[in-house]
Design a protein around this nucleic acid. Structure first.
Length: 217
DNA sequence: TCATTAACACGGG
DNA sequence: CCCGTGTTAATGA
C-alpha cells in the first residue's frame, strides 16, 4: 500500500496532517516476515520504528545470554529504547523479534529532535509511548517478582491472544518455556492443568482460549 | 517442596 | 520417522 494513504488511514487521529506529510516524505515502509530479528543487544540504533500492523516481541537478556520476554509492540507503538538511544547515540539493551508478519514505517533518527519541537502530536506520541512502555515493563517485572509460574503462563497466553487478535495461538510448550525462562516439563504440566480446568484447549502446536472465542469473533 | 534435567513412550502428521 | 506432548525418576536449591 502507498505510504501516504496508509498514514492517513491509520494515523490521521494521532498525528496532525503536516506531520503525516513529513513522515510520508522521509519514512520507509517495510513489511517484515514473522520471527525476524529486528534488533540485537548492543546494536546501535539509527532508525525509529513506527508499527503499522503486526506485532514485535521485546526481550531482555540475562548474564548467561538467555532471553526473557518482556512485552509486545503493536499498532501505533514505537520502541521506547529507540527513543532514548538515538538521541544519546547509545546502544540497545534489548532485542526485538517480529512475532507475525509486521508492517513498519522507519523514520530517520535526525527527524526526532526536529519534530519534538515542531509538532505537538509527535511530542505527545513520544511521551505517551514512553509511558505505556514503562507501564508494560513494570507489569513484566511484577509478574517476574510476585507471580508464580501458573499465573505468568496465564498472563502470557492472555497477552498473546490479545496481540494476535485470535483465540487460537500457534505455539509449542518449548517456545513458551523459553520465553518465560522455564522448562518444558513445567509448561506441559501447567498446560495440562489449565486444560483440565477448561481454561485452554490444546492440540499439537496450538493452544486456544475458549474465554476469548466469542469476544474476538 | 518445587524446578530442572534426562529419559522414555505415545501418537499424529 | 520426526517432533511435540505427557510422565517419571533423580538431583539440587
Amino acid at each position: 500500500m502507498e505510504i501516504t494513504t496508509l498514514l492517513q488511514n491509520e494515523f490521521a487521529v494521532e498525528f496532525e496532517s503536516a506531520l503525516i506529510l513529513e513522515i510520508a516524505d522521509c519514512g520507509e515502509l517495510r513489511t517484515i516476515a514473522p520471527h525476524t530479528p529486528m534488533m540485537e543487544i548492543g546494536q546501535e540504533i539509527s532508525r525509529i520504528p513506527l508499527l503499522v500492523s503486526g506485532s514485535i516481541k521485546i526481550f531482555t537478556e540475562d548474564a548467561s545470554g538467555d532471553e526473557l520476554f518482556l512485552y509486545y509492540l503493536e499498532h501505533g507503538d514505537t520502541c521506547a529504547m529507540t527513543l532514548k538511544c538515538c538521541t544519546g547515540k547509545k546502544k540497545s539493551t534489548i532485542s526485538a523479534i517480529t512475532d507475525e508478519e509486521t508492517t513498519i514505517i522507519f523514520i530517520p533518527v535526525q527527524k526526532m529532535d526536529e519534530w519534538m519541537v515542531k509538532y505537538v502530536s509527535w511530542r505527545n506520541f513520544v511521551l505517551d509511548s514512553h509511558h505505556s512502555r514503562m507501564q508494560e515493563l513494570l507489569e513484566a517485572v511484577d509478574s517476574l517478582a510476585f507471580m508464580n509460574m501458573e499465573e505468568r503462563l496465564k498472563k502470557y497466553l492472555h497477552d498473546k491472544v490479545l496481540v494476535s487478535k485470535s483465540a487460537e495461538i500457534q505455539i509449542t510448550h518449548a517456545e513458551i518455556a523459553r520465553d518465560l525462562h522455564s522448562s518444558r516439563v513445567v509448561i506441559s504440566r501447567l498446560m495440562k492443568k489449565l486444560e483440565n480446568n477448561g481454561e485452554v484447549v490444546q492440540s499439537r502446536n496450538k493452544v486456544s482460549l475458549p474465554e476469548y472465542a466469542q469476544k474476538l469473533k
